[in-house]
């Protein structure tokens, strides 16, 4: 039986949502009606939905109904009309804000090699401040633990958000996505599942590896990065964005994981902690090629209408990375914690 961390609400929407989920579906037919109207208003008035603590937490909770792992709620909530409607209201604005911020550039021809080249170019041009370089050179133990906590929201579910797209792709693109994901899921060896290896990293740093243990610590931007992947993955129409996101994610991974591995070694951590990062240096050099050419590239050839979304997904990945990276480096430069509340010295494992 998993132990769930009690989630702190961050405003009226996440607060009312948590109250609703603590009831049984159907118990009160009117429950959620006011919440839906309040969400419409809150979404409309939100100055910046990407950093809106209340709405991003609500979205995270709503997605967790599909993934599991965040609360001991009645599982039938997953397919109830109210939570789904609330989710759609938030997603609509979330997606339109991202699209507004990231106009699609000149598109390459819808040919696998050209699409891969464009994705490599986009990710190489990305000039976002490098958190991994900071970790390699100067991060403190406390900052290293913070970065692992930020990463844990996705990495303890590594590969899952993109896997939603598997049945939504066909042929070459499907085979390529499965080829990558099979490797992420350990190629049939449970001890090699990337999320499991990352859990070892967390334990090695005296952190809890229980999913959701640190959600109350994580700022909206970290939630938004994960929410964006879930939004892309859970909407079939956004499968192009999922493939572009995964390609950009893999293309920016092998070198930064080398920096992380070196940083954690500099701080004195052993192979139990660095295994995850070292593993990704080799793995993602493979994955980025498959993701660029055989996944995103083949999808563009097979479904050329999806090409703009493939590029959008890649841009969105880089953009959210740059926002979270800037947040981390800004707070650390001010000698503050990058989390909503600093980590305690040591954590009692549940």
């Amino acid at each position: 039986m998993p132990i769930f961390t009690s989630l702190d609400s961050r405003g009226p929407i996440s607060g009312s949502l948590l109250s609703m989920l603590n009831t049984l579906p159907g118990e009160d037919p009117d429950i959620g009606t006011d919440l839906l109207l309040d969400t419409v208003r809150s979404v409309r008035d939100a100055p910046d939905i990407l950093s809106d603590e209340d709405l991003q937490l609500a979205l995270l909770i709503l997605y967790s109904l599909h993934y599991g792992g965040l609360g001991n709620w009645d599982p039938r909530w997953e397919w109830q009309a109210k939570p789904l409607s609330i989710r759609l209201v938030i997603e609509e604005r979330f997606e339109s804000v991202l699209r507004g911020l990231l106009p699609v550039p000149d598109l390459p021809p819808a040919e696998a090699e050209a699409v891969a080249a464009e994705l490599f170019k986009l990710t190489a041009e990305d000039s976002s401040p490098s958190v991994s370089k900071y970790v390699a050179r100067q991060a403190s133990v406390e900052q290293a633990r913070e970065i692992v906590v930020h990463k844990s929201l996705y990495t303890l579910k590594e590969a899952d958000p993109h896997s939603w797209a598997i049945p939504r792709l066909q042929g070459r693109a499907k085979a390529a996505l499965v080829e990558i994901q099979a490797d992420e899921y350990g190629g049939g060896r449970p001890d090699q599942v990337q999320a499991t290896i990352f859990a070892g990293t967390m334990r090695g740093m005296d952190l809890s590896d229980a999913y959701g243990y640190y959600v109350n610590h994580l700022p909206a931007l970290t939630l938004a990065s994960f929410n964006m992947m879930s939004m892309f993955g859970l909407h079939r129409r956004l499968r192009g964005a999922t493939t572009g996101h995964l390609a950009a994610f893999e293309m920016t991974s092998s070198i930064s994981n080398r920096f992380y591995g070196n940083g954690f070694r500099r701080l004195g951590y052993g192979a139990d902690v660095t295994w995850y990062f070292d593993e990704h240096v080799e793995a993602d050099a493979v994955h980025e090629q498959i993701a660029g050419r055989d996944l995103a590239g083949a999808l563009a050839e097979d479904e050329p209408d999806l090409l703009p979304d493939i590029i959008f997904g890649a841009q969105a990945c880089l953009y959210m990375d740059s926002l979270t990276g800037a947040h981390l480096l800004d707070t650390w430069n001010r000698e503050e914690s990058s989390l909503r509340q600093p980590l305690s010295e040591s954590v009692a494992l549940p």
């Binding site: 080829e179 099979a182 490797d183 190629g187 092998s254 070198i255 080398r258 240096v281 080799e282 793995a283 993602d284 050099a285 493979v286 980025e288 090629q289 498959i290």
Partner: peptide, 21 residues
């Protein structure tokens, strides 16, 4: 370690014969 692997051909990898990007 994995089904599909990448071999370095630029000569600069730190994990030769594998590619490290």
């Amino acid at each position: 370690k994995r089904k599909t692997i990448a071999l370095c051909r630029c000569g600069a990898s730190t994990i030769k014969p594998h590619c490290d990007g």
